[in-house]
């Protein structure tokens, strides 16, 4: 080791004998890479894409259907990794996201970017080979929309970020439908509308009782830029806009009495929840710890899940 400085020697020794080449930074385990793909968001993608594929009027081989949904999920995961790569600075500020793999130092930003890009290319190619190239192109557009249009462009710029960006989360059932049919139709557009108009009241209800996080992260959430009163009006307005699309879906060939009954009940409950949020002021909400807002947020989760379950059940029992 002639010519090497003591510092180099000690560094090499440390690297060879220490179990961690970067002191203070824990190495990632496999679960950290899985967390990078946002598995909870993926579960929504998997479920809605599966329903879109299942209720389509074209039969798909079960293994091809399984692979298609899997590749759509991988595409969703790629979007999640790209989102975490770009939003690492925001995630480090927010309490809810501080423990994510990048802000906690377990995964480097470049690794997340590489994983996101590789998985995106992989998912699109494999979906094209497994299903069809229209569905693959649709998946590529969805990943682009979430990673670039929402994450890079809209999220830090406008309080309407989740309204437009919510489209990315609404595309999966259309991609599932496209896997089976190779195209778009009124049924898949209405499934898109169902998620698209559901997203704003869902997220804004959450933002009402998670306000401090978005404020500290300087994300222009509606609650920060326009205040809670305006957010409450928007939540109620979106529940009203959402209902006709949800019920219209029940009048298409994928609908039926079971879906219609479920949809009417869920929309009445959701509009009532929106109305309750509208009528409250901050004093009341703070007094009971945002109990109503929390309840409506939970209801919004059931609202979407049960609509898609109703579509599955209706398809199984026979449509109109």
């Amino acid at each position: 080791m002639i010519g090497w400085s003591d510092q180099h020697d000690s560094q090499i020794e440390e690297t060879m004998t220490d179990t961690n080449a970067y002191p203070g930074v824990p190495e990632a385990e496999f679960g950290d890479f899985v967390a990078l793909l946002k598995p909870r968001v993926m579960s929504l993608v998997v479920f809605t894409a599966f329903v879109g594929l299942w209720v389509a009027p074209v039969e798909v081989h079960p293994f091809v259907a399984f692979c298609s949904v899997l590749f759509i999920a991988v595409g969703g995961g790629a979007s999640g990794a790209l989102n975490m790569w770009y939003d690492a600075d925001i995630d480090a500020v927010m309490r809810r996201t501080k423990g994510r793999p990048i802000p906690s130092g377990r995964i480097e930003e470049g690794t997340a970017l590489a994983l996101g890009l590789i998985l995106a290319g992989f998912a699109v190619m494999m979906l094209g080979l497994a299903a069809n190239w229209f569905a693959a192109a649709f998946l590529a557009f969805t990943i682009f929309f979430y990673a670039v249009v929402y994450t890079i462009w809209l999220k830090r710029w406008t309080p309407q970020n989740i309204v437009i960006g919510g489209a990315a989360g609404a595309f999966p059932p259309m991609i599932g439908w496209a896997c089976a049919t190779g195209g778009i139709s009124i049924e898949s557009l209405l499934m898109f509308a169902l998620i698209f108009f559901w997203t704003p009241p869902h997220f804004w209800a959450l933002a009402l009782f998670m306000k401090s996080d978005y404020h500290e992260a300087k994300v222009p959430m509606l609650t920060v830029t326009h205040g809670h009163a305006a957010t409450r009006r928007h939540i109620f307005a979106y529940t009203l806009v959402l209902a006709p699309f949800a019920i219209w879906l029940g009048l298409t060939p994928v609908g039926g009495p079971i879906y219609m009954a479920a949809s009417v009940v869920l929309n009445v409950l959701f509009i009532h929840g929106g109305w309750q949020i509208l009528r409250r002021d901050e004093k009341e909400s703070i007094a009971d710890g945002y109990a109503v807002e929390r309840r409506v947020f939970k209801l919004s989760l059931y609202y979407l899940f049960l609509h898609f379950v109703a579509l599955l059940v209706q398809n199984w029992m026979g449509t109109w």
Binding site: D18, T19, A28
Partner: peptide, 21 residues
């Protein structure tokens, strides 16, 4: 820090290797 027979980092690396496999 000495290299123990079974260190936390071994577990993490094994989980990565098994996951990738």
């Amino acid at each position: 820090m000495t290299l123990n027979a079974e260190h936390e980092i071994h577990r993490r690396r094994r989980s990565r290797n098994v996951g990738l496999a």
